[in-house]
Design a protein around this nucleic acid. Sequence first.
DNA 1: CGAATAGTGTCTTTTAGACAATATGTT
DNA 2: AACATATTGTCTAAAAGACACTATTCG
Lengths: 232, 232
Amino acid sequence: MSDWEAPRVLLAVDLVILTVRGSSLQVLLVERGVEPFEGALALPGGFLRDVEEDIPAAARRELEEEAGLADEPHLEPLGVYGEPGRDPRGRVISVAHLAIAPRLPEPVAGTDAAQAWWKPVDDVLSGRLELAFDHRRIVADGVERARAKLEHSALATAFCGDTFTIAELQQVYEAVWGAQLDPRNFYRKVQAAPGFIVPAGDERRPGNGRPARLFRAGPTDSLNPPMVRSAQ
Amino acid sequence: MSDWEAPRVLLAVDLVILTVRGSSLQVLLVERGVEPFEGALALPGGFLRDVEEDIPAAARRELEEEAGLADEPHLEPLGVYGEPGRDPRGRVISVAHLAIAPRLPEPVAGTDAAQAWWKPVDDVLSGRLELAFDHRRIVADGVERARAKLEHSALATAFCGDTFTIAELQQVYEAVWGAQLDPRNFYRKVQAAPGFIVPAGDERRPGNGRPARLFRAGPTDSLNPPMVRSAQ
DNA sequence: CGAATAGTGTCTTTTAGACAATATGTT
DNA sequence: AACATATTGTCTAAAAGACACTATTCG
């Protein structure tokens, strides 16, 4: 064992960036510019820049380079994906991250050299859309993580802008969970968890009817009581 | 970018192996035999054996080599820990795994060259016990994962032997959550989740009182309704 | 005013938790 | 029998969900 040397691997960072557009949960995909899978759709990501780069830093860097999202969206580690033979360039270990982007005006977050598109996660999960590598699995894990965290954490506010109405927050839950919720019960439910959301003063969002009160994300991340998705 | 080459890192696998002994949640620790942190307590683990080794396979190998646990305990990926400067031997990325060992007769799972001990997680989390590297943080994450999963999954059965009584299952919940539960409500609660546990036929465990019925793990992993730990 | 959405009140059903009562074994 | 633990039953309080109703804006 004394002349044995531990093998070295390539370390990549991949991003599952989710947002809600319209009433559907969407994920940001890019077109690969190099082999393998050149031309195929894939998650934004890339190799560690240098051997001293911190993993969260690499994730933030890719978030900005490939998605143009510089303004601190929610970002958390998701998992490690590293089957041998996954990439012909050698043994690659990918550290996937989950990022949540707030509702953007409309335009797709284009970037860099490659192009980027928001695509409905349903199209990815159902297989209607082919992804490079094992990226479909990674998306599935990211979506499942988001669904679970909506129950117990304040993650939903990361999908919204700085201020938002309760109806907008409900749209997030409905898009991520793929379920309809009663607006009246939802209204009281979100306010029952102390510190989840706090009023932002005046009123706005003059939609078709009565303008809705505005809220912003509260101080606590852990929801108690939790938001429960009924057992389908 | 054409003459740029992606950096390579060392890949390690670390194990948070939890069990319940007596009424406390315990974690398996080994004494490090080499620098850095020689002589200090640490999680079992090690480098990938060769560049083609699968990560789950490496985790199972360490589980057997360092803990003597060959018989398929529950094993799941926990997270990635790879700050630069964490290890003087170079850039090391550690993929931590969570393993659950069933209640063992009594003897400590000794092994290999190094020695191993079960230690109460409370001693690790409180800092009474010093651990090498960032292993205290990894233990904390593993314990938190276990606590959370006990609510929504059948993970608790992994702490038990092949068959178990409901009182034994309750001891698992109490040790992991660090809380007291009402045996009568617990009894109905665990049976209310379809597929969580199934009867194993006859009776046994003739303790001091009436012998308890035996159960084994049921087919479903997802608990519905969940076991809830009251909001402390 | 009428349409449309925001926000409140109330009732019913379900669930969580406390705890009495009964069952079945050991000594 | 006395004791200890297992298992069942029952009551009460809290929460989830359905849904009628009121409020406020726009056209």
